[in-house]
Computed example of a mutant assay.
Amino acid sequence: MRQQWNDNRLVYEDRLKEKMKERIKYLTMTDASKVWMPDTFFRNEKIGAFHNILQPNLYIRIFPNGDVLYSIRVSLTCGCSMHLALFPLDEQTCALNIASYGWTKSDLVYVWKDDDAVQIPGNLSLPGGFKLGGYGNQYCDVVTATGEYSCLQVDLMFARQLSFFVVTIYIPCSMTVTVSWFSFWLDHKAVPARVALGVTTLLAMSTTQASIQNSLPPVAYTKAIDVWSGVCVFFVFSALLEYALVNYASRSDEQRSVKQKERKERELEHCSFNPERLEEQGAPLSMDPLMRRIEGAHMIPPSAYLHHNRIPIRRPNKISLWMKNFQFQAKKIDVFSRVLFPFVFAMFNAWYWSYYLSKAQSQKENKAS
């Protein structure tokens, strides 16, 4: 941080000889207590530290006309109020406020330098998936109960590198959800395999969601990352519930198949023809059994015949025909889930990215205007 002001008590230009004026451009000091200093402080500072290795990192240059240039190296941790509704697709603007602590505006006024008031190094790199989107400077004079104070403000716009969050959050969550769908291709009788796969993916997704929440400050509103992680947990949990439904359907299928077999046996017993009953209807006993059956065939009641030609033939549609190709209802649930779950997740991705990217773009335009 550099500050420059003029102190007419330090003018020594008239004391220099002509030869000395060319050689001495300014005097350098390292003791700030020897000259008057403004009581500058950072209004939103939380933690600050000076650099004193190996010597205090500061210098004071006194020019012949009384100008004083004070440069010091400091490290600051400042507070910044952020709105994280679009995290991690958001941009945050943080301010650095510089003001006088005790001198009012009638005594001390801060003015930005005309050229290059804020200088940013070209090789600046920020941790945590951030990048510097832009910066600016303005005035932020404040009025308090003790008077009006001059204030300077540096605006720093921080944009998040989306690729960082795609690699660390979105892709791992998508892979966990996809792994949970593998259970749809396993046999419904493989209970240990399907339960272990569902529970493992659910625990992995819950751990990922907890780690995301721990890295962010608690807020009262829903963030974009909360929507993503919550829906991913819902899909993994739904895959586990799907197997519970399949297990219940498989047991119902077994009971249904047993009842169908019993009903078919009763129908066969009811529809079977007993030739011995023809003897009670007057058939000659001396005839050969085979001839007796043939000659007594006219005694069979018409209701014993199956008239298939009288039943109209209905052509089943493709969907019902495809559904009847599977023997068990549990198998149908797995087949539907193989198509339904990826389709719904793809639709959610289309809505999520289109909605939040459009909101992020509109937020950028509002800040630019």
Rank of each mutant, 00 (worst) to 15 (best):
P64G: 06
V68R: 11
M205K: 01
T222K: 03
V167Y: 14
I171C: 09
D187T: 04
D226I: 04
R43M: 00
R73F: 00
L216P: 03
G66C: 09
I62Y: 10
D288I: 02
V199G: 06
W5E: 11
V246M: 07
C271T: 03
F184C: 13
H51E: 05
D114K: 08
K332R: 15
W181K: 12
I300L: 12
A368T: 03
S215N: 00
E148Q: 08
A159K: 07
H51Y: 04
N6L: 07
L126Y: 12
F87Y: 10
M175F: 09
D14H: 14
L186A: 08
S106D: 15
K46G: 05
S174H: 05
N8S: 14
S75P: 06
P301C: 02
K34I: 08
G129M: 06
F343L: 12
L152D: 12
S150E: 13
N247V: 01
F328N: 14
Y139M: 01
K113D: 01
V344N: 14
D187I: 02
E269K: 04
S211P: 02
N6W: 01
G133F: 04
S362G: 05
V109M: 05
E254Q: 15
W103C: 01
F273K: 10
A220D: 10
P121L: 04
P38R: 13
E262L: 11
E276S: 05
Y352K: 01
A220Y: 06
F343M: 07
I72Y: 13
S75W: 07
F182Y: 12
D115C: 11
S272L: 07
Y12Q: 11
D116K: 15
F41H: 04
S320T: 05
P121F: 05
K359T: 00
N52W: 03
T144W: 00
R73A: 00
G122N: 13
F336R: 13
D107T: 13
G296S: 10
Y355M: 09
T208W: 01
I98G: 02
P312A: 06
F328W: 15
T77V: 15
A330T: 09
M20S: 15
R15C: 11
S238C: 05
K189L: 08
T146E: 13
H298V: 09
L357A: 12
M347A: 06
C232M: 10
F237C: 05
V335Q: 08
